[in-house]
Design a protein around this nucleic acid. Structure first.
Lengths: 238, 238
DNA sequence: TTGCAAACTTGATCAAGGTCAAGGTTTCTT
DNA sequence: AAGAAACCTTGACCTTGATCAAGTTTGCAA
Protein backbone atom coordinates (compact mmCIF):
# COMPACT_ATOMS: atom_id res chain seq x y z
CA UNK A 1 0.00 0.00 0.00
CA UNK A 2 2.70 2.39 1.03
CA UNK A 3 4.66 3.21 -2.06
CA UNK A 4 5.94 6.72 -1.45
CA UNK A 5 7.73 8.87 -3.96
CA UNK A 6 11.13 7.73 -5.19
CA UNK A 7 14.27 8.69 -3.26
CA UNK A 8 15.21 11.57 -5.50
CA UNK A 9 12.48 13.50 -3.72
CA UNK A 10 14.21 13.16 -0.38
CA UNK A 11 16.23 16.28 -0.86
CA UNK A 12 18.38 17.77 1.84
CA UNK A 13 16.37 20.90 1.11
CA UNK A 14 13.03 19.62 2.25
CA UNK A 15 14.40 17.76 5.25
CA UNK A 16 15.98 20.91 6.50
CA UNK A 17 12.83 22.94 5.94
CA UNK A 18 10.94 20.32 7.87
CA UNK A 19 13.08 20.39 10.97
CA UNK A 20 13.22 24.16 10.94
CA UNK A 21 9.50 24.45 10.62
CA UNK A 22 8.49 22.32 13.57
CA UNK A 23 7.81 24.08 16.86
CA UNK A 24 9.33 21.21 18.82
CA UNK A 25 12.73 21.76 17.25
CA UNK A 26 12.91 25.32 16.04
CA UNK A 27 14.26 26.72 19.28
CA UNK A 28 17.46 24.71 19.01
CA UNK A 29 20.95 25.88 18.09
CA UNK A 30 22.07 25.43 14.46
CA UNK A 31 24.47 22.60 15.28
CA UNK A 32 21.76 20.75 17.17
CA UNK A 33 19.44 21.18 14.23
CA UNK A 34 22.07 19.72 11.96
CA UNK A 35 22.33 16.74 14.25
CA UNK A 36 18.61 16.15 14.17
CA UNK A 37 18.42 16.69 10.45
CA UNK A 38 20.91 13.96 9.87
CA UNK A 39 18.63 11.53 11.71
CA UNK A 40 15.67 12.54 9.60
CA UNK A 41 14.30 10.90 6.49
CA UNK A 42 11.82 12.39 4.10
CA UNK A 43 9.10 10.41 2.35
CA UNK A 44 6.52 11.55 -0.16
CA UNK A 45 2.94 10.41 -0.60
CA UNK A 46 0.56 11.16 -3.40
CA UNK A 47 -2.93 12.46 -2.88
CA UNK A 48 -5.27 9.83 -1.52
CA UNK A 49 -2.48 7.48 -0.57
CA UNK A 50 -2.84 5.54 2.65
CA UNK A 51 0.05 6.32 4.97
CA UNK A 52 -0.74 3.80 7.66
CA UNK A 53 -3.52 1.64 8.98
CA UNK A 54 -4.58 1.06 12.54
CA UNK A 55 -2.62 -1.91 13.78
CA UNK A 56 0.52 -1.12 11.81
CA UNK A 57 3.58 -1.07 14.03
CA UNK A 58 4.47 2.46 14.90
CA UNK A 59 8.07 3.28 15.62
CA UNK A 60 8.68 6.78 14.44
CA UNK A 61 7.67 10.36 14.81
CA UNK A 62 6.26 11.81 11.60
CA UNK A 63 6.35 15.49 10.83
CA UNK A 64 4.38 16.92 7.96
CA UNK A 65 6.56 19.06 5.77
CA UNK A 66 4.16 19.83 2.97
CA UNK A 67 0.61 18.76 2.24
CA UNK A 68 -2.18 17.65 4.52
CA UNK A 69 -2.82 14.41 6.34
CA UNK A 70 -6.14 13.17 7.61
CA UNK A 71 -6.08 11.04 10.73
CA UNK A 72 -9.13 8.97 11.50
CA UNK A 73 -10.27 5.98 13.50
CA UNK A 74 -12.66 3.23 12.69
CA UNK A 75 -15.14 2.33 15.38
CA UNK A 76 -16.11 -1.24 16.20
CA UNK A 77 -19.09 -0.90 13.92
CA UNK A 78 -16.94 0.34 11.07
CA UNK A 79 -17.79 4.02 11.18
CA UNK A 80 -15.08 6.50 10.41
CA UNK A 81 -14.30 9.16 12.96
CA UNK A 82 -12.01 11.98 11.96
CA UNK A 83 -9.53 12.72 14.72
CA UNK A 84 -7.53 15.56 13.29
CA UNK A 85 -5.99 16.97 10.15
CA UNK A 86 -2.26 17.57 10.10
CA UNK A 87 -0.94 20.66 8.35
CA UNK A 88 2.73 21.40 7.65
CA UNK A 89 4.59 21.62 10.95
CA UNK A 90 2.24 19.23 12.76
CA UNK A 91 3.48 15.89 13.94
CA UNK A 92 2.05 12.52 14.72
CA UNK A 93 3.17 9.22 16.06
CA UNK A 94 2.76 10.18 19.68
CA UNK A 95 1.68 6.85 21.04
CA UNK A 96 4.44 4.91 19.53
CA UNK A 97 7.17 7.09 20.76
CA UNK A 98 7.30 6.21 24.35
CA UNK A 99 6.38 2.58 24.37
CA UNK A 100 6.38 -0.20 21.83
CA UNK A 101 3.08 0.09 20.14
CA UNK A 102 0.96 0.10 17.05
CA UNK A 103 -1.00 2.84 15.34
CA UNK A 104 -4.47 3.29 16.73
CA UNK A 105 -5.67 5.24 13.75
CA UNK A 106 -5.44 5.47 10.00
CA UNK A 107 -3.79 8.25 8.08
CA UNK A 108 -4.20 9.26 4.47
CA UNK A 109 -2.59 11.99 2.43
CA UNK A 110 -5.28 14.50 1.50
CA UNK A 111 -2.94 16.10 -1.01
CA UNK A 112 0.52 15.30 -2.28
CA UNK A 113 2.44 15.27 0.94
CA UNK A 114 6.01 15.24 2.24
CA UNK A 115 6.65 13.70 5.62
CA UNK A 116 9.85 13.68 7.65
CA UNK A 117 10.41 10.85 10.04
CA UNK A 118 12.65 10.20 13.02
CA UNK A 119 12.92 6.74 14.53
CA UNK A 120 12.07 6.13 18.14
CA UNK A 121 15.61 5.33 19.28
CA UNK A 122 16.94 8.48 17.65
CA UNK A 123 14.24 10.65 19.14
CA UNK A 124 14.65 9.17 22.60
CA UNK A 125 18.33 9.91 22.44
CA UNK A 126 17.62 13.52 21.49
CA UNK A 127 15.10 13.88 24.27
CA UNK A 128 17.65 12.83 26.85
CA UNK A 129 20.39 14.94 25.30
CA UNK A 130 18.27 18.07 24.84
CA UNK A 131 15.58 18.03 27.50
CA UNK A 132 14.02 21.22 26.16
CA UNK A 133 12.67 19.18 23.26
CA UNK A 134 10.77 17.05 25.72
CA UNK A 135 9.27 20.16 27.26
CA UNK A 136 8.10 21.30 23.84
CA UNK A 137 6.53 17.95 23.13
CA UNK A 138 4.92 17.91 26.55
CA UNK A 139 3.42 21.31 25.83
CA UNK A 140 2.07 20.09 22.52
CA UNK A 141 0.66 16.94 24.10
CA UNK A 142 -1.05 18.86 26.82
CA UNK A 143 -2.58 21.10 24.17
CA UNK A 144 -3.86 18.08 22.29
CA UNK A 145 -5.10 16.34 25.36
CA UNK A 146 -7.00 19.44 26.27
CA UNK A 147 -8.48 19.66 22.77
CA UNK A 148 -9.40 16.01 22.77
CA UNK A 149 -11.11 16.11 26.15
CA UNK A 150 -13.00 19.20 25.10
CA UNK A 151 -14.11 17.43 21.98
CA UNK A 152 -15.34 14.46 24.01
CA UNK A 153 -17.34 16.74 26.25
CA UNK A 154 -18.76 18.53 23.25
CA UNK A 155 -19.82 15.38 21.48
CA UNK A 156 -21.29 13.80 24.56
CA UNK A 157 -23.17 16.75 26.01
CA UNK A 158 -24.18 19.08 23.19
CA UNK A 159 -26.63 18.67 20.36
CA UNK A 160 -25.39 18.66 16.80
CA UNK A 161 -26.65 22.17 16.24
CA UNK A 162 -24.50 23.60 18.99
CA UNK A 163 -21.47 21.52 18.07
CA UNK A 164 -21.67 22.84 14.54
CA UNK A 165 -22.19 26.41 15.67
CA UNK A 166 -19.21 26.23 18.01
CA UNK A 167 -17.13 24.71 15.26
CA UNK A 168 -17.94 27.53 12.87
CA UNK A 169 -17.08 30.08 15.52
CA UNK A 170 -13.78 28.34 16.16
CA UNK A 171 -12.97 28.43 12.46
CA UNK A 172 -13.87 32.08 12.32
CA UNK A 173 -11.53 32.88 15.18
CA UNK A 174 -8.68 31.16 13.41
CA UNK A 175 -9.22 33.33 10.38
CA UNK A 176 -8.42 36.42 12.39
CA UNK A 177 -10.87 39.30 12.40
CA UNK A 178 -12.67 38.23 9.26
CA UNK A 179 -16.42 37.81 8.91
CA UNK A 180 -15.97 34.98 6.51
CA UNK A 181 -14.45 31.56 6.94
CA UNK A 182 -13.40 28.65 4.79
CA UNK A 183 -14.19 25.18 6.04
CA UNK A 184 -10.89 23.31 6.18
CA UNK A 185 -12.52 20.07 5.09
CA UNK A 186 -15.42 18.61 3.18
CA UNK A 187 -18.80 18.44 4.85
CA UNK A 188 -18.52 14.71 4.84
CA UNK A 189 -15.35 14.94 6.88
CA UNK A 190 -16.81 17.64 9.04
CA UNK A 191 -19.72 15.36 9.83
CA UNK A 192 -17.29 12.64 10.79
CA UNK A 193 -15.37 15.05 12.99
CA UNK A 194 -18.48 16.32 14.74
CA UNK A 195 -19.96 12.89 15.23
CA UNK A 196 -22.89 13.26 12.89
CA UNK A 197 -23.84 12.69 9.23
CA UNK A 198 -23.40 14.80 6.09
CA UNK A 199 -27.19 15.00 5.76
CA UNK A 200 -27.54 16.57 9.17
CA UNK A 201 -24.72 19.05 8.53
CA UNK A 202 -26.41 20.07 5.33
CA UNK A 203 -29.76 20.60 7.02
CA UNK A 204 -28.38 22.48 10.00
CA UNK A 205 -26.47 24.87 7.77
CA UNK A 206 -29.67 25.58 5.89
CA UNK A 207 -31.37 26.25 9.21
CA UNK A 208 -28.62 28.67 10.19
CA UNK A 209 -29.04 30.35 6.84
CA UNK A 210 -32.80 30.65 7.25
CA UNK A 211 -32.29 32.07 10.72
CA UNK A 212 -30.07 34.71 9.14
CA UNK A 213 -26.95 33.64 11.01
CA UNK A 214 -24.81 32.73 8.04
CA UNK A 215 -24.65 32.72 4.29
CA UNK A 216 -23.15 29.80 2.42
CA UNK A 217 -20.97 30.70 -0.52
CA UNK A 218 -19.06 28.77 -3.10
CA UNK A 219 -15.99 26.70 -2.34
CA UNK A 220 -16.70 25.96 1.31
CA UNK A 221 -16.82 29.60 2.22
CA UNK A 222 -19.31 30.75 4.82
CA UNK A 223 -20.09 34.33 5.72
CA UNK A 224 -21.10 34.98 9.32
CA UNK A 225 -24.00 37.44 9.50
CA UNK A 226 -24.96 37.11 13.15
CA UNK A 227 -22.28 35.75 15.41
CA UNK A 228 -24.26 36.18 18.62
CA UNK A 229 -27.26 34.44 17.16
CA UNK A 230 -25.06 31.58 16.10
CA UNK A 231 -23.46 31.44 19.53
CA UNK A 232 -26.82 31.39 21.27
CA UNK A 233 -27.73 28.63 18.88
CA UNK A 234 -31.43 29.24 19.00
CA UNK A 235 -32.74 28.67 15.55
CA UNK A 236 -36.31 29.67 14.97
CA UNK A 237 -38.57 26.71 14.29
CA UNK A 238 -41.46 27.14 11.86
CA UNK B 1 -14.24 26.88 48.86
CA UNK B 2 -10.86 25.28 49.18
CA UNK B 3 -10.29 24.83 52.86
CA UNK B 4 -8.13 21.74 53.06
CA UNK B 5 -7.15 20.00 56.25
CA UNK B 6 -4.93 21.86 58.70
CA UNK B 7 -1.15 21.69 58.30
CA UNK B 8 -0.61 19.03 60.92
CA UNK B 9 -1.84 16.58 58.32
CA UNK B 10 1.04 17.38 56.00
CA UNK B 11 3.26 14.76 57.45
CA UNK B 12 6.62 13.89 56.05
CA UNK B 13 5.28 10.33 56.06
CA UNK B 14 2.53 10.83 53.53
CA UNK B 15 4.62 13.07 51.30
CA UNK B 16 7.21 10.37 51.02
CA UNK B 17 4.64 7.69 50.29
CA UNK B 18 3.20 9.89 47.60
CA UNK B 19 6.42 10.43 45.70
CA UNK B 20 7.34 6.78 45.99
CA UNK B 21 4.01 5.67 44.72
CA UNK B 22 3.91 7.66 41.51
CA UNK B 23 5.09 5.96 38.33
CA UNK B 24 6.62 9.16 37.05
CA UNK B 25 9.07 9.30 39.93
CA UNK B 26 9.47 5.82 41.29
CA UNK B 27 12.33 4.88 38.99
CA UNK B 28 14.61 7.54 40.47
CA UNK B 29 17.55 7.14 42.84
CA UNK B 30 16.93 7.66 46.58
CA UNK B 31 18.78 10.97 46.69
CA UNK B 32 16.78 12.26 43.75
CA UNK B 33 13.58 11.20 45.45
CA UNK B 34 14.63 13.11 48.55
CA UNK B 35 15.18 16.17 46.43
CA UNK B 36 11.74 15.93 44.92
CA UNK B 37 10.12 15.18 48.23
CA UNK B 38 11.48 18.36 49.66
CA UNK B 39 9.73 20.32 46.92
CA UNK B 40 6.44 18.60 47.63
CA UNK B 41 3.54 19.74 49.78
CA UNK B 42 0.68 17.63 50.98
CA UNK B 43 -2.88 18.88 51.31
CA UNK B 44 -5.96 17.08 52.56
CA UNK B 45 -9.54 17.40 51.37
CA UNK B 46 -12.65 16.02 52.94
CA UNK B 47 -15.22 14.01 51.05
CA UNK B 48 -17.27 16.11 48.71
CA UNK B 49 -14.93 19.05 48.90
CA UNK B 50 -14.30 21.01 45.72
CA UNK B 51 -10.61 20.98 44.89
CA UNK B 52 -10.71 23.39 42.00
CA UNK B 53 -13.07 24.94 39.52
CA UNK B 54 -12.62 25.45 35.82
CA UNK B 55 -11.03 28.83 35.37
CA UNK B 56 -8.94 28.66 38.52
CA UNK B 57 -5.30 29.40 37.81
CA UNK B 58 -3.38 26.20 37.58
CA UNK B 59 0.27 26.21 38.48
CA UNK B 60 1.08 22.89 40.02
CA UNK B 61 1.13 19.19 39.45
CA UNK B 62 -1.15 17.32 41.84
CA UNK B 63 -0.61 13.73 42.75
CA UNK B 64 -3.24 11.74 44.59
CA UNK B 65 -1.76 10.04 47.62
CA UNK B 66 -4.92 8.63 49.17
CA UNK B 67 -8.57 8.87 48.26
CA UNK B 68 -10.30 9.42 44.96
CA UNK B 69 -10.80 12.53 42.87
CA UNK B 70 -13.47 13.06 40.26
CA UNK B 71 -12.55 15.29 37.34
CA UNK B 72 -15.35 16.68 35.24
CA UNK B 73 -16.16 19.43 32.81
CA UNK B 74 -19.20 21.54 32.38
CA UNK B 75 -20.44 22.00 28.85
CA UNK B 76 -21.75 25.30 27.50
CA UNK B 77 -25.23 24.20 28.34
CA UNK B 78 -24.28 23.34 31.90
CA UNK B 79 -24.18 19.57 31.61
CA UNK B 80 -21.59 17.71 33.58
CA UNK B 81 -19.23 15.42 31.75
CA UNK B 82 -17.02 13.12 33.77
CA UNK B 83 -13.52 13.08 32.35
CA UNK B 84 -11.76 10.68 34.67
CA UNK B 85 -11.42 9.51 38.22
CA UNK B 86 -8.03 9.73 39.86
CA UNK B 87 -6.94 6.94 42.19
CA UNK B 88 -3.85 6.99 44.40
CA UNK B 89 -0.78 7.36 42.21
CA UNK B 90 -2.60 9.24 39.46
CA UNK B 91 -1.73 12.83 38.74
CA UNK B 92 -3.39 15.83 37.24
CA UNK B 93 -2.55 19.38 36.32
CA UNK B 94 -1.20 18.52 32.94
CA UNK B 95 -2.29 21.59 31.06
CA UNK B 96 -0.93 24.03 33.50
CA UNK B 97 2.46 22.56 33.69
CA UNK B 98 3.92 23.60 30.43
CA UNK B 99 2.31 26.94 29.84
CA UNK B 100 0.63 29.55 32.00
CA UNK B 101 -2.91 28.45 32.14
CA UNK B 102 -6.08 27.82 34.04
CA UNK B 103 -7.91 24.62 34.90
CA UNK B 104 -10.28 23.48 32.20
CA UNK B 105 -12.17 21.20 34.48
CA UNK B 106 -13.50 20.82 37.98
CA UNK B 107 -12.25 18.40 40.56
CA UNK B 108 -13.92 17.16 43.71
CA UNK B 109 -12.77 14.75 46.38
CA UNK B 110 -14.99 11.69 46.21
CA UNK B 111 -13.66 10.53 49.57
CA UNK B 112 -11.32 12.01 52.13
CA UNK B 113 -8.27 12.62 50.02
CA UNK B 114 -4.59 13.49 50.36
CA UNK B 115 -2.93 15.29 47.48
CA UNK B 116 0.73 16.11 47.01
CA UNK B 117 1.62 19.11 44.92
CA UNK B 118 4.72 20.36 43.15
CA UNK B 119 4.83 23.86 41.71
CA UNK B 120 5.47 24.43 38.07
CA UNK B 121 8.90 26.04 38.47
CA UNK B 122 10.07 23.19 40.66
CA UNK B 123 8.81 20.55 38.29
CA UNK B 124 10.28 22.24 35.25
CA UNK B 125 13.63 22.30 36.99
CA UNK B 126 13.40 18.60 37.75
CA UNK B 127 12.43 17.83 34.18
CA UNK B 128 15.53 19.52 32.86
CA UNK B 129 17.74 17.99 35.51
CA UNK B 130 16.37 14.45 35.21
CA UNK B 131 15.10 14.03 31.66
CA UNK B 132 13.84 10.53 32.38
CA UNK B 133 10.99 12.07 34.33
CA UNK B 134 9.89 13.86 31.18
CA UNK B 135 9.89 10.56 29.32
CA UNK B 136 7.66 9.05 31.97
CA UNK B 137 5.25 11.94 31.78
CA UNK B 138 5.29 11.78 28.00
CA UNK B 139 4.39 8.12 28.19
CA UNK B 140 1.52 8.85 30.55
CA UNK B 141 0.28 11.70 28.37
CA UNK B 142 0.35 9.58 25.28
CA UNK B 143 -1.63 6.94 27.14
CA UNK B 144 -4.21 9.50 28.15
CA UNK B 145 -4.37 11.08 24.74
CA UNK B 146 -4.98 7.68 23.28
CA UNK B 147 -7.73 6.98 25.83
CA UNK B 148 -9.34 10.32 25.24
CA UNK B 149 -9.39 9.98 21.48
CA UNK B 150 -10.79 6.52 21.79
CA UNK B 151 -13.49 7.85 24.05
CA UNK B 152 -14.39 10.55 21.54
CA UNK B 153 -14.68 7.98 18.79
CA UNK B 154 -16.79 5.77 20.99
CA UNK B 155 -19.19 8.50 21.99
CA UNK B 156 -19.53 9.87 18.51
CA UNK B 157 -19.90 6.65 16.56
CA UNK B 158 -21.45 4.04 18.82
CA UNK B 159 -24.88 3.75 20.34
CA UNK B 160 -25.29 3.87 24.09
CA UNK B 161 -25.84 0.14 24.24
CA UNK B 162 -22.47 -0.63 22.73
CA UNK B 163 -20.66 2.00 24.74
CA UNK B 164 -22.04 0.52 27.92
CA UNK B 165 -21.23 -3.02 26.86
CA UNK B 166 -17.66 -2.06 26.00
CA UNK B 167 -17.33 -0.25 29.27
CA UNK B 168 -18.44 -3.29 31.24
CA UNK B 169 -15.99 -5.45 29.35
CA UNK B 170 -13.20 -3.00 30.07
CA UNK B 171 -14.05 -3.09 33.77
CA UNK B 172 -14.08 -6.84 33.71
CA UNK B 173 -10.65 -6.96 32.15
CA UNK B 174 -9.27 -4.75 34.86
CA UNK B 175 -10.55 -7.13 37.50
CA UNK B 176 -8.32 -9.85 36.18
CA UNK B 177 -9.82 -13.18 35.27
CA UNK B 178 -12.99 -12.69 37.31
CA UNK B 179 -16.52 -13.15 36.00
CA UNK B 180 -17.76 -10.40 38.23
CA UNK B 181 -16.99 -6.72 38.32
CA UNK B 182 -17.63 -3.75 40.55
CA UNK B 183 -18.56 -0.49 38.91
CA UNK B 184 -16.01 2.05 40.06
CA UNK B 185 -18.60 4.80 40.20
CA UNK B 186 -22.29 5.51 40.61
CA UNK B 187 -24.58 4.99 37.66
CA UNK B 188 -25.16 8.68 37.58
CA UNK B 189 -21.44 9.27 37.08
CA UNK B 190 -21.23 6.41 34.66
CA UNK B 191 -23.96 8.02 32.60
CA UNK B 192 -22.02 11.26 32.60
CA UNK B 193 -18.87 9.45 31.56
CA UNK B 194 -20.58 7.59 28.73
CA UNK B 195 -22.43 10.65 27.47
CA UNK B 196 -25.92 9.48 28.36
CA UNK B 197 -28.41 9.67 31.24
CA UNK B 198 -28.89 7.58 34.38
CA UNK B 199 -32.30 6.51 33.12
CA UNK B 200 -30.84 5.07 29.96
CA UNK B 201 -28.09 3.25 31.85
CA UNK B 202 -30.69 1.74 34.09
CA UNK B 203 -32.83 0.57 31.20
CA UNK B 204 -29.95 -0.83 29.17
CA UNK B 205 -28.68 -2.83 32.11
CA UNK B 206 -32.13 -4.32 32.50
CA UNK B 207 -32.07 -5.18 28.79
CA UNK B 208 -28.71 -6.89 29.22
CA UNK B 209 -30.12 -8.77 32.15
CA UNK B 210 -33.20 -9.88 30.20
CA UNK B 211 -30.98 -10.98 27.37
CA UNK B 212 -29.11 -13.13 29.88
CA UNK B 213 -25.80 -11.32 29.43
CA UNK B 214 -25.37 -10.10 32.98
CA UNK B 215 -26.84 -10.22 36.43
CA UNK B 216 -26.97 -7.16 38.63
CA UNK B 217 -26.11 -7.69 42.26
CA UNK B 218 -25.91 -5.50 45.30
CA UNK B 219 -23.34 -2.75 45.79
CA UNK B 220 -22.59 -2.02 42.16
CA UNK B 221 -21.51 -5.53 41.45
CA UNK B 222 -22.33 -7.10 38.12
CA UNK B 223 -21.85 -10.71 37.16
CA UNK B 224 -21.08 -11.41 33.53
CA UNK B 225 -22.99 -14.43 32.26
CA UNK B 226 -22.38 -14.15 28.54
CA UNK B 227 -19.36 -12.14 27.55
CA UNK B 228 -19.65 -12.85 23.85
CA UNK B 229 -23.28 -11.86 23.78
CA UNK B 230 -22.42 -8.66 25.52
CA UNK B 231 -19.60 -8.02 23.09
CA UNK B 232 -21.82 -8.62 20.10
CA UNK B 233 -24.25 -6.26 21.75
CA UNK B 234 -27.31 -7.63 20.08
CA UNK B 235 -30.07 -7.54 22.62
CA UNK B 236 -33.22 -9.38 21.71
CA UNK B 237 -36.17 -7.06 21.25
CA UNK B 238 -39.61 -8.23 22.25
C1' DT C 1 -14.63 19.35 -22.80
C1' DT C 2 -16.78 15.77 -21.51
C1' DG C 3 -17.79 12.48 -18.33
C1' DC C 4 -17.41 10.10 -14.10
C1' DA C 5 -17.11 9.84 -9.28
C1' DA C 6 -17.56 11.93 -5.21
C1' DA C 7 -19.79 15.24 -2.59
C1' DC C 8 -23.82 17.48 -1.44
C1' DT C 9 -28.92 18.32 -0.94
C1' DT C 10 -33.65 17.32 0.09
C1' DG C 11 -37.49 14.47 1.42
C1' DA C 12 -39.80 10.85 4.06
C1' DT C 13 -39.59 7.73 7.73
C1' DC C 14 -38.46 5.86 12.13
C1' DA C 15 -35.76 4.35 16.14
C1' DA C 16 -32.83 5.75 19.87
C1' DG C 17 -32.70 7.90 23.64
C1' DG C 18 -33.55 12.33 26.22
C1' DT C 19 -36.93 14.47 29.34
C1' DC C 20 -40.35 14.75 32.90
C1' DA C 21 -42.58 12.68 36.61
C1' DA C 22 -43.29 9.79 40.40
C1' DG C 23 -42.09 6.11 43.45
C1' DG C 24 -38.65 3.08 45.58
C1' DT C 25 -33.80 2.24 47.54
C1' DT C 26 -29.53 2.99 49.29
C1' DT C 27 -26.49 5.50 52.05
C1' DC C 28 -25.02 9.02 55.01
C1' DT C 29 -25.68 11.88 59.00
C1' DT C 30 -27.03 12.80 63.36
C1' DA D 1 -32.36 4.24 64.66
C1' DA D 2 -34.57 7.87 62.33
C1' DG D 3 -34.50 11.09 58.84
C1' DA D 4 -32.77 13.32 54.92
C1' DA D 5 -30.60 13.35 50.72
C1' DA D 6 -28.91 11.26 46.99
C1' DC D 7 -29.45 7.68 43.88
C1' DC D 8 -31.84 4.51 41.16
C1' DT D 9 -35.89 2.59 38.55
C1' DT D 10 -39.87 2.59 35.63
C1' DG D 11 -43.38 4.63 32.76
C1' DA D 12 -45.15 7.83 29.15
C1' DC D 13 -44.02 10.88 25.79
C1' DC D 14 -41.72 13.38 22.22
C1' DT D 15 -37.52 15.45 20.02
C1' DT D 16 -33.37 14.70 17.66
C1' DG D 17 -31.04 13.06 14.27
C1' DA D 18 -29.87 8.55 11.69
C1' DT D 19 -31.11 6.10 7.67
C1' DC D 20 -32.68 5.20 3.03
C1' DA D 21 -33.55 6.92 -1.36
C1' DA D 22 -33.31 9.85 -5.19
C1' DG D 23 -31.82 13.67 -7.37
C1' DT D 24 -28.24 17.69 -8.14
C1' DT D 25 -23.89 19.83 -8.11
C1' DT D 26 -18.98 19.99 -8.03
C1' DG D 27 -14.39 18.77 -9.00
C1' DC D 28 -11.12 16.32 -11.31
C1' DA D 29 -8.98 13.48 -14.99
C1' DA D 30 -8.68 11.91 -19.48
Amino acid sequence: MKKGIPPHNCQEQSTKACVLRVPIFNHLEPHQLDEIMSATRSVGYTKGELINRAGDPSDMLSIVNAGKVKIYRLSESGKEQLVRILAPGDFSGELALFRESVHESYSVAMEDTQICTITRPDLQAFLLKYPTIALKILAEFSRRLEASEKQTTLVSTEKVEKRLALYLIECLEQEGAATELTLPMSKKNLASYLGTTPETISRKLVEFENAGFIRQKARRRIEILNLDGLRAGITIRL
